[in-house]
Design a protein around this nucleic acid. Structure first.
Length: 761
DNA sequence: TGGAAGTTA
């Protein structure tokens, strides 16, 4: 009996698929260690000859001319054209890196910065770290004297501006992958526009794969004369070296794309010749479901005597790395590989040999609700740009096919590109960074895509509560916030007006203002605000760290802060769930997740940071190593700020109180309804199933690091606290109120937030 | 009962 072939029906539109393919210069370390053999027609040529074969080589002089004559060049470089590796070399060869100047290239991801730098160093016969270098967090591989071409993450570029606001060392900066519109790329874009106004000699190349070029060009164009010949920015398109991808759409919408993915993969396997399959889904759970369904069907098919076998592999960021590496392994000729992946395979990881792509048409994205200050993950339709990027994964080595599990009509309805991260994030860290760079009036910052005004207000409010900026200063706040917001519409204006009125109604005693270092001009406060901004962390973590000396537990808090930056410390293999849970339970303490993580780390250190020990206890070894690196970095900052090195010697109370001093705004109380409610917004919350407090006797009061919304609102990283601590450590935020108990006709004391809700109208 | 993917001297 043949394995079931699903009812999925595709038709091919008359047009050929978009000829997109993956940039050949982006190789993750994982990929370069892969053993798959790729036919390279130019392998016998010298490096110089290979460079000249790249599509971009023909435009070398044209590019140099445009960089010479325009402040900003927007480069539509199709993948595979060689822009990331070649342009910096052209610039250096043309003298842009002479006299101690540097050509900088930014990347959204660390691995890309490192691997492209390595490639360029190879091409130039240079030792990595001399003429060509890279700089990412924890790894500065540059020589301040010798480095002429520097690759760095865009987050690192923003950090560099703190030390050198005009980036004086750089003659040219290339922002690569700008179309991805990550948070840091967008911050860098706004800052660079400001820098260009002060530094006419700084050249900018904005490299983008899609057609956002006009937007970039207009944003950077400083010509306000209306005469196009005076434009300061210009667009250039470079063709890529690509293979065509045929696109197939489904005839009528499918009710269940998970099932359809399985059916389509099986159909490809039975009908098509050689070539591996890559399927895009939205999350880990879907990936695992499809993997197990495919394995089952492939087994059934093998029993019927089909000679070609299927090797089904999951791929998502949370997958332990030995499992991830399997997708790069070569398979024998009678085996077809199916990689079932999340969006990680769209930009970050490139699997070679993919000929068939299955696109479910959806993606899981972060969304931010400025009203409740809660970030959540939502499954939404992909954008056209994303869908084309996915399709391009099939055309890397030879022509391929992409099966879209939606109709062509639905494709036409998709948004052109994904909403920039800036418009769907919590802005507190962004605003903090901008303020640290001396941008006091963040509402007038030149955002390429301005975030919602309410997100701004929410972020300012949190920063104020932490004692960071002096947004309570009255006139100044009215001027800077209201002045700018009023242009954005009446509703926003009303929100901000209420906000300011409330702030002004709560004057602070002078002593307190000094203690928090408030500044009447809405600048970052000295020293607290500036210090908080120096930490590469969410401001709540930074505040907690800076307070840790006062609680006599900086050692413990350093560990906790570092551990909280790492995801998936507990490893749970699907086939050893109960065994893993048993091991994990040994670390759990009744106080909650923070102290549990402290236990894990201390045990890790006690066992000499052994990977063997981690494996036995189902702990993420790489994650723990990373935590210890982060801890070292944070420790250096505490030393610099003269926070005393102290340990509470096993006493949990100082540690818990210190956590409250940073996370007091995230407090919730357990109600008789069986759920928690936030104190500030009365928002219903639940303990996340990954918390050690899940399914335990719920503590009456808790603080949490963050809330994520899936089926319900879940608190992650939860710790039990006492209400008295909240009142004592955040008296400006909470007050005690008498509450009438409905059932017992008694009153008892409870807490409410002093601040009213923003935008509650 | 369940988080996508990134990032910070």
């Amino acid at each position: 009996m043949a394995a079931p072939v699903g009812p999925v029906k595709f038709w091919k539109p008359g047009t050929e698929g978009p000829g997109v393919s993956v940039s050949e210069e982006r190789q993750s370390p994982a990929e370069s260690s892969s053993i798959s053999v790729i036919y390279n027609p130019y392998a016998s040529l010298s490096i110089e000859q290979q460079r000249q074969k790249l599509p971009i080589f023909k435009l070398r002089n044209h590019i140099l001319y445009l960089v010479e004559n325009y402040q900003t060049l927007v480069l539509i470089g199709e993948t595979g054209c060689g822009k990331s590796t070649q342009i910096p070399q052209y610039l250096a060869e043309a003298g842009w890196a002479a006299e101690g100047r540097v050509v900088g290239v930014t990347q959204p991801r660390r691995v890309a910065a490192v691997s492209i730098a390595g490639r360029v160093a190879d091409e130039r016969g240079a030792v990595l770290g001399h003429e060509v270098g890279y700089c990412i967090r924890f790894d500065d591989c540059t020589d301040s004297q010798a480095t002429r071409i520097k690759f760095l993450t865009d987050g690192m570029l923003v950090r560099e501006m703190m030390a050198d606001p005009l980036l004086t060392r750089y003659s040219v900066l290339m922002l690569d992958e700008a179309h991805e519109r990550t948070l840091y790329t967008d911050i860098a874009i706004g800052l660079l526009r400001k820098i260009q106004k002060k530094r006419g000699d700084l050249r900018l190349i904005v490299a983008s794969a899609t057609l956002d070029a006009e937007k970039f060009k207009n944003f950077f164009n400083q010509n306000d004369t209306g005469d196009p010949s005076k434009d300061t920015s210009v667009i250039l398109t470079v063709e890529g070296r690509t293979f065509p991808v045929d696109i197939f759409y489904i005839q009528s919408p499918v009710p269940d794309y998970v099932k359809s993915t399985v059916e389509t993969a099986m159909k490809i396997h039975q009908m098509e010749n050689d070539g591996d399959i890559l399927a895009f889904l939205t999350g880990q759970e879907e990936v695992e479901t499809v993997v197990s369904m495919l394995i089952e069907q492939a087994r059934a098919l093998s029993r019927t005597g089909m000679k070609k076998h299927l090797r089904v592999l999951p791929m998502y960021a949370g997958l332990p790395s030995p499992e991830q590496m399997k997708v790069f392994e070569r398979v024998s000729h009678n085996v077809r590989k199916v990689v079932v992946a999340t969006n990680v395979a769209e930009t970050s990881i490139t699997v070679r040999g993919i000929v068939f792509v299955i696109d479910c048409g959806f993606v899981k994205l972060r969304a931010y609700n400025p009203k409740t200050a809660i970030e959540c993950l939502v499954v939404v339709p992909v954008s056209k740009a994303s869908a084309n990027q996915r399709a391009g994964r099939a055309g890397r080595n030879r022509s391929g096919k992409c099966y879209r599990l939606y109709t062509e009509e639905d494709f036409e309805k998709l948004p052109k590109s994904t909403v920039p991260e800036m418009q769907r994030s919590n802005l507190a860290p962004v605003i903090l960074q901008l303020k640290a760079l001396g941008i006091d009036n963040v509402l007038r910052f030149p955002f390429l895509s301005p975030p919602p005004a309410q997100s701004m207000v929410q972020a300012l409010e949190l920063l104020y509560a932490l004692g960071v900026p002096s947004c309570k200063g009255g006139f100044c706040f009215r001027h800077s916030v209201l002045g700018s917001l009023s242009k954005l519409g009446t509703r926003t204006f009303t929100v901000a007006q209420k906000h300011v009125a409330r702030m002004n109604s709560q004057p602070k005693p002078p002593g307190e203002m000094e203690r928090e270092g408030l500044d009447m001009h809405c600048r970052l406060t000295e020293p607290l605000g500036m210090r908080i901004a120096e930490f590469p962390l969410n401001p709540m973590f930074a505040k907690m760290l800076l307070e840790s000396g006062n609680f006599g537990c900086s050692q413990e808090i350093l560990t906790i802060a570092a551990m909280m930056q790492i995801q998936n410390i507990f490893v749970i293999p699907p086939n050893q769930k109960s065994q893993a849970a048993r091991r994990h339970r040994k670390f759990a303490v009744e106080e909650g997740d923070h102290l549990t993580m402290l236990n894990v780390y201390e045990a890790f250190v006690k066992h000499s940071k052994s990977s063997q020990w981690c494996q036995e206890h189902f702990l993420n070894y790489k994650g723990l190593v990373r935590a210890s690196v982060v801890r070292e970095q944070l420790k250096k900052l505490l030393v610099r700020f003269k926070v005393p090195k102290k340990s509470s010697e096993g006493d949990p109370d100082p540690v818990l109180r210190c956590i409250v001093s940073g996370f007091f705004a995230n407090a919730a109380k357990f109600h008789s309804t069986g759920a928690y409610r936030t104190i500030r917004d009365d928002q219903e919350l639940h303990i996340h199933p990954t918390s050690v407090l899940y399914a335990e006797k719920p503590p009456r009061w808790v603080v949490y690091n963050e809330v994520i919304q899936t089926a319900k609102y879940y608190m992650r990283d939860v710790t039990a606290v006492e209400s008295a601590w909240l009142l004592e450590l955040a008296p400006h935020f909470y007050q005690q109120v008498a509450v009438q108990d409905q059932h017992k006709a008694q009153t008892h004391l409870s807490l409410t937030a002093k601040r009213a809700k923003v935008g509650d109208q």
